[in-house]
Design a protein around this nucleic acid. Structure first.
Lengths: 206, 206
DNA sequence: ATTTTTACCATACAAATGTATGGTATTTAG
DNA sequence: CTAAATACCATACATTTGTATGGTAAAAAT
């Protein structure tokens, strides 16, 4: 079907896929800049090759008009910043602990990030070990939303409830007691709101 | 914080959000074309207003350089084409039966669509009623992948296994017998491969 | 050995895109 | 009532972006 790609072509294709996942298809100039090319014609020729080999479709005279056609390439490695315990707190890691293959459909909103869930206290909310939660920081949670928070240098995923002078973090699983944080307690920091759960099907194949 | 938007501004913002979900931020010309404006300056002024009110950020001299800032507006209504029975087959609907609020992170690959899951035969794969599966058509499934197929005008979600002269569709749940389709049986049509499961957290709030 | 493909370059051009300025009419706010 | 914001228009311009053509050199294919 589709022919083999050269190393350069593959790199350019990967770059386009990666950029697309973060939001925007790059322009020829942006691709050229990334690879240090001094003009766009070089990029254009590689794109022509990619199109001829069936990996992309170019929309003539349309800015950022590259369409990706290779379904197998629709997965992008994305860093997972840490594991997050739905049950007992676990230490959060400063750097990426893992990389998952996230489909490009799951584009990350600005500043949002991924955490892999470990533990079972959210099983009643149908979140399981291995699922990836998409966390949106810089958003004020509403009562009842599932949030990620750092409590004494450990991360937790709980339902958020703001009361008068304290914040309560509830587990779905009744085995776990609600965590109560008094207002102004310095060991507590809200990380963000869980806006979605994604589970790739690719992992379970084979 | 952010000021109120006028109807026109809201419509333009919605249009940008919707377009972004399908892949690309629109250009001024594309926005103008959609609303019937005869020039781009009209659009530009609305964009300036949106930026002034804090809803977007414009990157000067960058094509399609609009960044969306309003996290609350990160949800796009998307049509759900039908319900899909993980257990016994259910009739598939010709038109959208429902609309869900999908976050724009869940951008749809070209031609892919959404189906809402109903039934429990996939509970062992942790897919539940109310979850939305993202279906990618035009892709040949590999053995073991979860597929959506139409069998005698009803839709099913099963694991796909291709054998010598037949196709087998397995449920995760052992209560359901595998469905065996002889090759060339005309009542069978593969719809697509389930590439992911998405569950919005927004629904469970309140 | 020769041709084709690949991988770059430079320059020029056209189309798309964003920008700037000024105009008219209507609606909203003070 | 008056000023400001809104909602369009037209025209002109600058920049970005994609396109076209031609060139050099090396690697791969025939």
């Amino acid at each position: 079907m589709s022919k083999e790609l050269t190393i350069t072509q593959q790199k350019i294709l990967d770059f386009i896929i990666e950029k697309r996942a973060t939001g925007k298809i790059p322009t020829l100039a942006e691709i050229a800049g990334h690879f240090g090319y001094r003009n766009r014609s070089t990029v254009r020729q590689h794109l022509q090759a990619l199109e001829r080999k069936g990996y992309i479709k170019r929309n003539p005279n349309v800015s950022r008009g590259i369409e990706l056609l290779t379904e197998d390439k629709f997965f992008v490695p994305r860093p997972v910043l840490g594991e997050v315990a739905a049950g007992n707190p676990l230490t959060i890691y400063p750097d990426a602990i893992d990389t998952i293959e996230l489909p490009t459909i799951a584009r990350m909103p600005k500043d949002s990030f991924l955490l892999k869930v470990k533990g079972d206290s959210l099983k009643d909310a149908y979140i399981f070990t291995g699922d990836v939660v998409i966390v949106n920081p810089n958003t004020q949670p509403r009562n009842g939303q599932i949030v990620v928070a750092v409590l004494d240098d450990a991360a937790v995923v709980k339902r958020f409830y703001k009361k008068r002078n304290r914040i309560e973090l509830h587990s779905e699983n009744p085995e776990y007691e609600p965590i109560v944080i008094e207002k102004n307690y310095s060991g507590f920091k809200l990380v963000g709101v869980v806006i979605g759960v994604y589970r790739s099907m690719e992992r379970k194949v084979g």
